[in-house]
Simulated scan of single mutants.
Amino acid sequence: MKICVIGGGGAIGGYLAAKLARAGNQVTVVARGATLATIQKNGLTLYMESEPRPIVAQVRAVEKISDVGIPDVIMLAVKAHQIEPIIDDLASIVGPETTLIPMQNGIPWWYFQNLPGPFENFPVETVDAGGQIMKKINPRNVIGCVVYPATYAESPGVIRHVEGNRFPLGELDGSQSERIQKISQMMSDAGFKSPILEDIRSEIWLKLWGNMTFNPISALTHEHLEGICRNPLTKDLARNMMLEAQTIAEKLGVIFRVDVERRISGAEKVGKHKTSMLQDLEAGNNLEIDALLGSVIELGRITNTLTPCLSTVFALTKLLNTKVQASQGRLALPELVLEH
């Protein structure tokens, strides 16, 4: 297939692009700056513990989305707040038969599209102000996806895989279409696990359940997952945030296949892992707080659900992000080394 990965030099985009190219697909990545130059010169490099040697994929790399052409599949591997600035260019390469797979954390802009009920086609303002993305991307082109792997960009054009290979997929209307079966097979051929789900929205909430709690708590405390889950106060806070979110989601018809305690236990088992939001904070990057938490609070408002814990953590993390961005700096506490 002809595949375009927007954000193909980033952690998840690079992981996808390298493995899909190795499987024989024609892959174009959209990247910038040093990352673009490195990929054009040396290819896209992916390190995996399961591989004795790095994967070096010779992909086509371009700077402008408009130079891509019309691909069969577009994988949108950028953060939610990065979509609106590129929406016109993105829309220009979505042909009638192109499949667009957004790969953002949090509640996606398309959440209420093709979803019968009182909120059908309701714009999620937190991630799509004025419904601008909805207006320019036909939902018929979109397939939902939940991203589970952990990866990071070690240097420009060099990606390191940490763990995981699951990218569950789902049509917005829950159908088992021919196109989603082909894309699921394409992902499987490249070494990914991409089961087709009838209810992709419930899977989004299952992933979001952890992201919307542990990510902002970790940014506020500079603590890893294991520490948050073992401290009684932060564990209780995470639990209360999850229960508020569960109330919202269940009002929207979502079914959780695990309970709160199991979800917290799963996070604890990950160990001393820094969340992506804590990593962004330490790097001085803009935090994904609107998509991960602001969107959930918005859905709380439209479902008449109180969100005291979610709203408090959101306010604190938003202020933290504002301060870091205003100072154009980064915020990282030194590691404590204990002498024995």
Rank of each mutant, 00 (worst) to 15 (best):
L76A: 06
I55M: 07
V73R: 05
A91M: 05
A61L: 02
V68N: 07
A91K: 08
M75T: 02
V78P: 00
I93N: 04
M75F: 14
E97Q: 14
T98S: 11
E63M: 13
P71Q: 11
A91R: 08
L100V: 10
G69Q: 07
I70S: 07
M75G: 03
I101M: 11
V73M: 10
I83H: 07
V94L: 13
A61K: 02
Q82Y: 01
P96G: 09
D89N: 14
G95Y: 05
L76G: 05
Q58K: 12
I74K: 08
G95I: 06
V59N: 02
I65W: 03
V94Q: 06
L100Q: 06
I93P: 00
H81N: 10
G95K: 14
V78C: 09
Q58D: 04
D67A: 15
I70G: 01
K79I: 04
A77L: 03
V59C: 02
V94D: 05
D72A: 12
P96N: 08
V59A: 02
I65L: 13
I83Y: 02
I83F: 04
P85V: 15
E63C: 14
H81Y: 11
L100W: 04
R60T: 10
L100A: 04
V59M: 02
S92K: 11
D89S: 15
P102V: 13
I83T: 11
Q58S: 08
K64S: 13
G95L: 11
D67E: 15
P102I: 14
H81G: 06
Q58A: 06
Q58T: 04
V78E: 00
A77C: 09
I83E: 07
L90P: 00
P85A: 15
P71V: 11
L100Y: 06
V94A: 11
A61S: 03
A80M: 06
P96A: 09
I74Q: 08
I87C: 08
E84M: 13
I86R: 11
I65H: 04
R60I: 09
Q82V: 08
T99I: 15
P96L: 12
D67H: 15
D88Q: 13
E84I: 13
V59F: 01
D89H: 14
I86C: 10
D67L: 14
P96M: 12
V56H: 03
E84D: 08
I65C: 12
Q58F: 01
S92T: 08
V59G: 01
V59S: 02
A61H: 02
I74G: 06
S66R: 14
D89K: 15
D72H: 11
P96F: 07
I70R: 10
I74L: 12
V78H: 03
T99F: 05
S92E: 04
Q82G: 03
T98A: 13
A77S: 09
V73W: 08
L90T: 04
D67M: 13
V56I: 07
D89T: 12
P85R: 15
M75W: 10
D88F: 07
P85W: 14
S92M: 11
D88L: 14
A61P: 02
I70Y: 04
K79Q: 04
I87L: 12
G69R: 12
A80C: 07
P96T: 09
D88N: 14
R60D: 03
A91Y: 01
A57W: 03
V62E: 09
P102G: 13
Q58P: 01
A91C: 07
V68L: 10
A77T: 04
K79E: 02
K64Y: 06
K64I: 00
V59H: 01
I55Q: 04
